[in-house]
Nucleic acid binder design. Sequence first.
DNA 1: AATGAATGAGTGTTCATTCAT
DNA 2: CATGAATGAACACTCATTCAT
Lengths: 208, 208, 208, 208
Amino acid sequence: MKTEFNDKQIQILEVAQTLFAEKGFDGTSIRDISKIAKINIAMVSYYFGSKERLLESLVLFKTSGLKEQLVNLIEENLEPIEKINKLIDLYINRINCNRGIYRILHFEISSKKHVLDLDSFSELKKGNLKSLEHIIQEGQSKGVFRKDIVIPLITPTILGTFFHFQMNKPFFEEILNLKTESQYNNYIKNDLTKHIQQTIKALLIYEN
Amino acid sequence: MKTEFNDKQIQILEVAQTLFAEKGFDGTSIRDISKIAKINIAMVSYYFGSKERLLESLVLFKTSGLKEQLVNLIEENLEPIEKINKLIDLYINRINCNRGIYRILHFEISSKKHVLDLDSFSELKKGNLKSLEHIIQEGQSKGVFRKDIVIPLITPTILGTFFHFQMNKPFFEEILNLKTESQYNNYIKNDLTKHIQQTIKALLIYEN
Amino acid sequence: MKTEFNDKQIQILEVAQTLFAEKGFDGTSIRDISKIAKINIAMVSYYFGSKERLLESLVLFKTSGLKEQLVNLIEENLEPIEKINKLIDLYINRINCNRGIYRILHFEISSKKHVLDLDSFSELKKGNLKSLEHIIQEGQSKGVFRKDIVIPLITPTILGTFFHFQMNKPFFEEILNLKTESQYNNYIKNDLTKHIQQTIKALLIYEN
Amino acid sequence: MKTEFNDKQIQILEVAQTLFAEKGFDGTSIRDISKIAKINIAMVSYYFGSKERLLESLVLFKTSGLKEQLVNLIEENLEPIEKINKLIDLYINRINCNRGIYRILHFEISSKKHVLDLDSFSELKKGNLKSLEHIIQEGQSKGVFRKDIVIPLITPTILGTFFHFQMNKPFFEEILNLKTESQYNNYIKNDLTKHIQQTIKALLIYEN
DNA sequence: AATGAATGAGTGTTCATTCAT
DNA sequence: CATGAATGAACACTCATTCAT
């Protein structure tokens, strides 16, 4: 599958991301997409082949570059815990910018996995896990992280906390008294991120 | 909205839960439900009014009793950390048994909130939060929990970790080498639950 | 598959036959059918499941009864050659009344055979062949028909001649100077039928 | 309409013939043709004007030369019945090599007659008929053929028998136990051709 | 001379819902 | 009280064709 898209394709992908985020994959029709993107209905099939292949392209489009960012992070000259914190920052930032696609990737895909060719996404997840593993093992060999950590369960805690917060946006807006969109986004950037960082740090360092 | 359902309604609700879990709300048609539940297509609209109101009923039906369980937990004679552990156990157990509905509640509902009357669910979440608050404050006054905890963010970490694991089932089955359904379920009951408990304990107790 | 149809289904089947005859199976849309039959577009799928299953139903509907007619013919007290002539009459008459379906059966189905469940039609053809066989063997044992006849090739000559005439209707209207529909139909009933009867008789009796 | 085609046009025509034979005119899309012929989608419209005009060109392309063959046949020094037999051979051979186009010409064209400019094809048929007429009249004047023959109905019997056999290929493969393609083709070349020749001979000679 | 991009109209089918019985 | 029949709207997708280059 090609990974480069022209302007019109990108336009479609952006609209698709927004709508998928708002209404889910099944809840979004290509009519919706074409109407908002102001393109002909046939364009989606024409450019991407089908609605499902549009999703695949969207995944490819929006996840490109993450791997490089992680590799760069690993090679930075930072303490392990600082790398972890930066990685959490990176994750939340990226996902926050690409809400639609990540929501779909993590929560809609299980049922469609037989249909979608998402090996590339699986590879991405494995790569991410490897990066995390690398950082944690570095911390362990430096004697600052506990030895008995189940590394694959770290990511669910990082991303799961964030997603759960996002998915229950109206609820948290109410009980945390976040009245504007910017207050909400600031809360994510500051308080929620800090909470996740604190949680992971405690888990990595605290001796039960 | 009434909270009692007859046998046929319950039958529909159970099938709906299963299918919603498998294919999502939009991905499930009334036809699917009526075929598997072996009832007439018109029954869903007849009994519940519409597909969306069916979902509301499902929420009501499946979340009833949780509040009582939490209140009972609070009143047990246990150490705060033991209460937290038990609460995590309780959550994961319940959600694991009612996968469909919880998945929908947490990840599909935001987009439908304008349509669904989910005040009752919001109330439930607030009640849950209150129970958690109660336990944590008990631990704080006993001097075993840190004072600077943002309590509303504890639930996202507990549930988010679990959901993220669930939603990426195929991925974790592969990298954790869980070959059978029972191995997978055992991993949740033992390892994943322990991971979450450990995480929350570290967060509550560890002084940064 | 059920073989009884209600009024509306029959109405659809009749319209389908006409349109299939005029424009072929692929050339006819269910929109065309529904418009002319003055029914909702969804009715076709609703009643028959799909366009292809509509064709199957049409085959079933229009071929029913033929077998009985042939069996009755066999048992009549007639000379073999008279039975053959009557059988040709019967064929041409039936097919002429159900042009659409027979045309499709003989000329469109080969490419669709993997899709259509037409065992029943194949059975019909075998039954017809058996009836023909029976009559010819009777004639052979009476000493009036030749012994070296390849019976399965008789039907292609009977039906093929008729179909070829039909399919080239405009051509034959021109060269035979058949100006009205009734002239054309009369030509089939009299001259063409006689030609086919004469041909088959010559083939069955004439010693090379 | 021009009757000469360049290499690319011929390539398209060959592919079109194959696909029309397999799936019918309506069942074949320009996309199918262009994909298999490995040419641009727009080429068909560009070279031939439209899909229907492509069919017209195909007819022209594939029927050219037949007339000459027939004229040559007439002028050969053969007995009338031998000419008839040779003509049947010629027909079946040609048609067998150009199955697609003849099938369409005889069975799909009636419905499209308002659209297709097939005067040229009609001329061809008239020419063929004239050749047949010539041979038969020769036989009649030699006293070997009956005088009361309806000549225009001879062709339907020759071609119709063959087409009907072809169109019901799976059926005849089964009941005649023709297991391979070559067995099937041999049956046509030998048995079916002989059957048709015998039939026409009987018709032409046998006095009722 | 040839083609990639683009399109409006059309395809068969499924949807949640309504309604007469 | 319950349901089979029916429907209009929407679905994803394919069609033959056009047009700027």
